[in-house]
Design a protein around this nucleic acid. Structure first.
Lengths: 225, 225
DNA sequence: TAGATTGTTAATCGATTAACAATC
DNA sequence: TAGATTGTTAATCGATTAACAATC
């Protein structure tokens, strides 16, 4: 159920952040940086940076540090951002359209080939000149076009069904904005973006102090009785 | 820089998922469930479920398991979803509008009070009857309205500046869709949703096998020379 | 060469899993 | 009562941090 990574996901999830900081340094014409200085900027330990990078190779030089341009380019390659990927969006509602509008993804090599929806009012419309097609022809489309990434922006009720169509027709990864867990073959990658889950961690944290006050009060009450 | 939680974030991030599964069980009229059965459905260990729940109290009964309705309601409270929260969105572009359109958040107690933008073409428009206001009056608005959560959907270049306005005017949490790290006081909560970071973990994983083939080949080459 | 900083091993810390006594 | 399952302690596993020899 989903593909395992050779490098731990804890490390993988930090890579885009390194990429961003190095891109920023590069833009500011910083030539070299030590793990210590980068660690101070990023608020992590220098040890962690060196450990993370050494999952992929020795990019630094003792006594010198890291060449910013080289390291940036190395992480670009590690993230696979030197390649290009074809994607489609299923669900052309507000969120699907918003993601379709992100021209930055195109710049990073992610090409949006089509959107799909079942709503006749949406079918035929275009976002950035990319057509919204009838979801009924999704399987056919996938057979005629090599699509790497399927982006799910549909209600949870139909998510698994659409995920099945994607995985049965050559899609290698699913970016899942539908708030449900997907069952996919072992060779398929799933990356969940569960916005409501994310929002609920905010309400949790806003409420935590009060929550534990209540818990402690209840404990006290139970103890006294 | 951001508030620490009493319970580890690893646990907190699993709570919304428990909430979803229990909601589903409740909808299907399942009355009771053991940690073992829930663990099988969710693909986690029963141990983890029991450990997680016991951060907040003993909700089960030996020999019986958990009452689904009680546990669901307990996790609802733990997540603070029995309370309501006022929010605003800064940045009424595609993504801001898409989030504003999510009526599900309203149902969970998150009330959207206004959107803000600097684009004159957007100012004055309404999404679900909620007005888009001029970002110039943001600070004033915050002083007149108790806002708990600020949702940032603006380009990274202005994110820190807006975050400062939010934190200086009583906002307690930031849901940050701008792809940048924010500096905020210790009592303010930040929850990042960095879509491009998430997408890049997909390209990483699509590319990982090939990446390590190259790494091993290079090692071999270095060894031979 | 002397100073700086890496790559890497070892130590620590935290999170997950296993085990089992308590108890419904 | 006997069987089931929790709550919780102990063991294991993995991730992070510290330390330092290697080396630029």
């Amino acid at each position: 159920m989903g593909k395992a990574t050779r490098v731990s996901m804890a490390v993988v999830r930090r890579l885009p952040r390194y990429h961003r900081y190095l891109g920023e340094l590069l833009k500011n014409d910083v030539r070299r940086i030590s793990s210590r200085e980068l660690s101070e900027r990023m608020g992590v330990t220098a040890s962690q940076i060196r450990q993370d990078l050494n999952c992929f190779g020795g990019f630094g030089q003792q006594g010198y540090g890291y060449n910013v341009e080289e390291l940036y380019s190395a992480i670009t390659k590690i993230l696979g951002l030197d390649k290009s990927y074809n994607s489609i969006i299923v669900g052309a509602g507000n969120l699907g359209q918003a993601i379709a509008g992100y021209t930055n993804f195109e710049k990073s090599g992610f090409t949006l080939k089509a959107l799909f929806d079942k709503n006749p009012k949406l079918i035929g419309l275009r976002i950035r000149d990319i057509e919204i097609l009838d979801v009924d022809i999704l399987a056919d489309f996938l057979n005629e076009n090599k699509i790497d990434i399927g982006i799910l922006c549909i209600p949870r009720s139909s998510a698994q069904q659409i995920a099945d169509i994607l995985t049965h027709n050559g899609v290698r990864a699913i970016w899942n904005f539908s708030v449900t867990d997907l069952n996919v073959p072992d060779n398929v990658i799933v990356e969940n973006v569960h916005l409501s889950d994310s929002l609920y961690t905010i309400s949790y944290r806003l409420n935590e102090d009060e929550l534990f006050k209540t818990i402690e009060k209840d404990k006290q009450k139970a103890f006294n009785s």
